[in-house]
Amino acid sequence: MSVSIDITGLAPERIRVVPSPLAEMGMALHALSEPAHHPGLQGWTTSVSTRLDPCLADRLCEADFLWRTTFSDVFTPAAGIAGRRTLPGATLTEELDLLDKLSDEQFVDAALEFTCQSTYASRTVDRLADPRTRERALDLAATRGVQQVRFTQRLLDDPPAIRTWFRELLMECDEAFFSDVWARVQHQLAADARHKTELLRRKGLREALGAVSTAVSLDETGRTISVDKITQGFAETGDGYLVLIPTSLGWPHLWVLHRAGWQPSIMYPISSPGLSAPPSVEQLTLRMSALAHPVRMRLCRHLARGSYTTSELSDAHGMSAPEISRHLSVLKKAGLITTRRHGRYMQHQLDLSVVSRLGGDFIEGVLR
């Protein structure tokens, strides 16, 4: 599974690496609402949460669906501007001005993303005018509580009022905590953007994407970018831009904007407290499937304690050597065991370092 971006005909000068204060604010709000996703930010999230004004905290709860489970596209308004060649603003105010340029339908469509997962990439209805879609949005909001229903109803009934409310909310967040965050990280983000831009210029897109994340790759034809995620999606740059947005607060998330009609964008973390090269979704699936079989689980109990030959494992488990070999082959293909020659014999052992990382690999994979 992956999200693919068709970049056929995309000229190098239409690939931009640009920090975004509004996108970084979205990540900050997400970290505050889901601190378990960002253990490396625990000190910061605890500090901000404890000193946050109660009234502001209540208002944040009203709209937290915009950043709690899904990073809403309202935090990247430049991508929705007609022509698909608008870049993120240099300041939060500039980006909020871009947000004001989106139509009410665009704003509502992006804000209600959590109710429209199946139609995210190919919108076919006007969410403000279609009664069935409105009803569906309210039904899904109801599963999250009365407060969520009230907010969704207000959003559908009076988008301009909610847009004004949302802008004021973000400005209050900026004053309360985000201006300090941005002052701390903006130079780091700008430096990373310059580095990736230089890689693009000197070594090409493939090298630059590899530096963005090991989960991002360019196919052999140079026409399709694939982002390894436990989801599927498709976008195309057409005659617009591809924008890469660095974030200091984003790990482990690797976010891809592939909304129909919007400029494709990839927001990537510039640092990671985890592995430098986490396994792909395919590798993770192989490892978890390999360990799901009861015989292979019992083999792992032996192999975790030392090195054994196929014959020794066959005797210990009362199985034929070919049967043991087949199970060992599955474990080896998944990268869970190592094999080394000892004299005339081949010995197998569980790779404890790989197995010990499975929990973290799984969390990184599903949150990516």
Rank of each mutant, 00 (worst) to 15 (best):
H258N: 14
G233W: 08
S226K: 07
G250A: 15
G233Q: 07
W262E: 12
L257A: 06
V256Y: 02
T247N: 14
T237C: 01
L254Y: 15
K229E: 09
G238W: 07
D239K: 09
L254E: 11
T247S: 15
S271A: 10
D239M: 06
T237P: 00
T247R: 12
T221E: 10
W251Q: 13
M267L: 12
Y268E: 02
T237H: 00
T247D: 12
M267V: 13
V243L: 06
I245M: 13
F234Y: 10
P246H: 02
W251V: 09
Y268R: 03
D239G: 07
L244C: 00
A260E: 12
I245S: 14
P246N: 04
P252F: 01
S265P: 00
E236K: 07
I225F: 00
S271K: 08
P246R: 03
R259A: 12
V256R: 03
Y268A: 02
L244V: 01
I225C: 00
Y241N: 12
P246S: 05
Q263E: 00
H253E: 12
L257F: 02
I270D: 08
F234G: 06
T221Y: 03
Y268T: 04
V256D: 08
D239V: 13
I245G: 13
P252E: 02
D228R: 04
L257R: 04
T231R: 07
V256I: 13
V243F: 02
H258S: 11
Q232D: 11
Y241C: 14
I266H: 08
G238R: 07
E236T: 07
G250F: 07
S226C: 08
T247W: 03
S226D: 09
G261E: 14
L242F: 03
S248G: 07
H253W: 14
T231H: 05
G233E: 10
V243T: 15
G240M: 04
T237D: 00
W262P: 05
M267C: 11
T221L: 08
L242R: 01
Y268D: 02
L249M: 08
A235C: 05
Y268S: 04
S271W: 15
W262R: 10
L244R: 00
G261Q: 11
A235I: 04
S248F: 11
K229M: 12
Y241H: 13
E236G: 11
R223E: 13
K229C: 06
T224A: 05
S248C: 09
T237A: 03
H258V: 04
W251A: 15
S248W: 12
I270E: 06
L244F: 01
G222N: 02
P246Y: 02
G238E: 07
I266V: 11
I230T: 05
L254C: 08
I266L: 15
H258P: 10
I245H: 12
S226H: 14
L249E: 04
T247G: 15
T231A: 13
T247E: 15
K229L: 15
W255D: 15
A260T: 10
S248M: 09
L249N: 03
A235N: 03
Y241G: 02
T221I: 03
R223I: 06
E236H: 11
L242K: 01
V256L: 06
G250C: 07
R259Q: 09
W262F: 15
T224W: 05
V227C: 01
T231Q: 08
Y241E: 06
K229Q: 14
M267Q: 14
H253Y: 14
P252G: 03
I270G: 09
L249W: 04
L244S: 00
L254V: 06
